[in-house]
């Protein structure tokens, strides 16, 4: 399988505080990579570094054969990287349809007909079509999460970054979002997915990357990662005898 993303020796810092260091991994096309790790491990910073919201001070990010390390977020989006946010960031003054149109118009950038067609297709597939003319600021948390995914999907991403799409939802709502994630997996889009529900991650991903204090602790098949002592130690604090 072709490698679509290569992260090599990534270093990110906020001022003097190093958040990510010496982080390297690859993602293959159509693969679902789960990123786990305790709070403060640098998971969301990794998403920000991949989507261009923070620029690393060292290391490279190569996506689809292009070095995007210094590229802006909008350039990365047009190149095929879409993302969602842990705390949804809808365009609150715009309707659901307009939110998705933003992604379609700027991400896809085809004719008006193609942009509207894409928006309608995405609204249908994310079960938001009936709420198209609702102002996004009035949506429930579940629909805001759906809208995050819909807006990202409208940009026609080759790589989708999902940042805790299930966080803050009830069990029933988590089930609905997971169905949506299953649909995404079926589309063949490459996904990097952060979630705290370890069991779900182990079952639904192709590879797992466990981060600890800003660096990659262990990377591999979910069964291998979940069985490792390092992961157990990070989550449960079990020390080696």
């Amino acid at each position: 399988m072709r490698k679509i993303l290569n992260v090599d020796n990534l270093h990110v810092a906020y001022g003097k505080f190093k958040v990510l260091h010496e982080l390297s991994f690859d993602v293959e096309e159509s693969q679902v990579l789960g990123v786990i790790g305790p709070n403060g491990a640098g998971k969301t910073t990794l998403m920000n570094a991949l989507s261009g919201l923070v620029i690393p001070y060292d290391g490279t990010v190569v996506f689809d054969g292009v070095n995007i390390t210094k590229k802006s977020p909008d350039e990365r989006c047009r190149h095929g990287i879409g993302r969602t946010y842990q705390v949804p960031r809808p365009f609150e003054g715009l309707t659901v349809f307009e939110n998705v149109l933003v992604g379609a118009a700027y991400g896809v950038g085809k004719s008006e007909r193609a942009v509207i067609a894409k928006a309608v297709e995405v609204l249908k597939s994310t079960s938001l079509y009936e709420k198209s003319d609702t102002v996004a600021g009035r949506l429930t948390l579940l629909d805001r999460k759906r809208l995050e995914i819909a807006r990202a999907l409208a940009t026609e991403p080759k790589l989708l970054l999902l940042d805790e799409v299930a966080a803050g939802l009830t069990d029933a709502e988590v089930h609905e979002v997971m169905e949506l994630v299953e649909y995404l997996k079926g589309t063949g889009i490459t996904i990097i997915w952060i979630e705290h529900v370890i069991k779900t991650m182990a079952e639904s991903t192709d590879k797992l990357l466990c981060l600890s204090t800003g660096t990659g602790l262990i990377y591999g098949d979910p069964d291998y990662v979940m069985a490792s002592k390092e992961v157990e130690e990070v989550y449960l604090g079990v020390e080696e005898e």
């Binding site: 919201l53 909008d74 809808p90 365009f91 609150e92 933003v102």
Partner: peptide
Amino acid sequence: FAIRDNDSASATSGV
């Protein structure tokens, strides 16, 4: 409109 409502989300949506 997107920039007004959320500049980082608008940037990652391609604006």
